[in-house]
């Protein structure tokens, strides 16, 4: 399990999303249903919190199924009016990310419901919203999407965390199944099939040439921006 901690950089979708969250007392708190990102003054995308609960999970099911299920959820839990906002665990509380996400405090004290102002803040967005965004780029196949976000920083360290690059390509977020990393041995046959399916996927550094447009629901990559192959 040490290999992830030692690495400087990780993929949010692969290493953080959907992992089990445990409090310092070993009690299950929930799953990392989504991760909140903040566009800070320097223009960097910084993770600020883990989002937990159905209001964070259901939107990730996609526009149609997700909103249907969310409506159903509101119908069932009508009594709790604030239940359309997820629970928030601040990123500072994350102590260790391994096969589970361990927090530095025992479970009952750390959860609080997201405030409405925070949910409406235009500078904040969720990883779940970014994954699957259409990518417009001349050098990539037409149906390319954002497949994952690559972070700098060790998930266990307290130092700088920010989104450094996007994994883009045709397919579905999560369909890489972790076979994008250099170290992955896999059963050779499965790895070969997945690599072939994702032969057009590329890594693009966030910077000048990349513009994330949440309103239009797309990411535009200017011609000439350098695209690195996945397993460079």
């Amino acid at each position: 399990m040490g290999s992830l901690a030692e690495r400087n950089g990780y993929d949010v979708g692969l290493h953080l999303l959907d992992r089990q969250v445990l409090g310092a007392d070993d009690r299950p708190v929930g799953k990392v249903d989504d991760v909140e990102l903040l566009l800070d003054d320097g223009g960097a995308l910084v993770p600020t919190a883990l989002l937990l609960g159905l209001p964070a999970l259901l939107p990730r099911f996609g526009p149609r199924l997700g909103s249907g299920l969310a409506r159903l959820h509101r119908l069932v839990r009508e009594a709790a009016a604030d239940q359309d906002l997820p629970l928030v665990v601040d990123f500072d509380l994350v102590e260790e990310v391994a096969s589970d996400v361990r927090l530095s405090e025992p479970s009952p004290r750390l959860l609080h419901r997201m405030a409405h102002e925070r949910a409406d803040d235009p500078r904040r967005c969720r990883v779940g919203d970014l994954l699957g965004l259409a990518v417009r780029c001349a050098a990539l196949p037409r149906h390319s999407k954002v497949l994952d976000l690559r972070m700098v920083g060790s998930p266990n360290g307290s130092g700088e965390h920010r989104v450094a690059a996007l994994l883009v390509g045709p397919g579905r977020p999560g369909a890489l199944l972790g076979y994008d990393r250099r170290s992955e041995p896999g059963p050779a046959a499965v790895a070969a099939v997945i690599h072939w399916l994702h032969r057009h996927a590329r890594v693009v550094e966030l910077g000048e040439g990349v513009e994330i447009d949440n309103e239009a629901g797309e990411v535009r990559i200017r011609a000439g921006t350098s695209l690195a192959p996945l397993r460079g």
């Binding site: 249903d33 099911f61 096969s99 589970d100 999560g174 199944l177």
Partner: peptide, 21 residues
């Protein structure tokens, strides 16, 4: 035994929430 993760943890972590569901 090694990672403390049972089957349906893995299903969701690898296949994502939608296919996992």
């Amino acid at each position: 035994a090694v990672s403390g993760r049972a089957t349906f943890d893995l299903v969701r972590e690898r296949l994502g929430p939608r296919i996992g569901f």
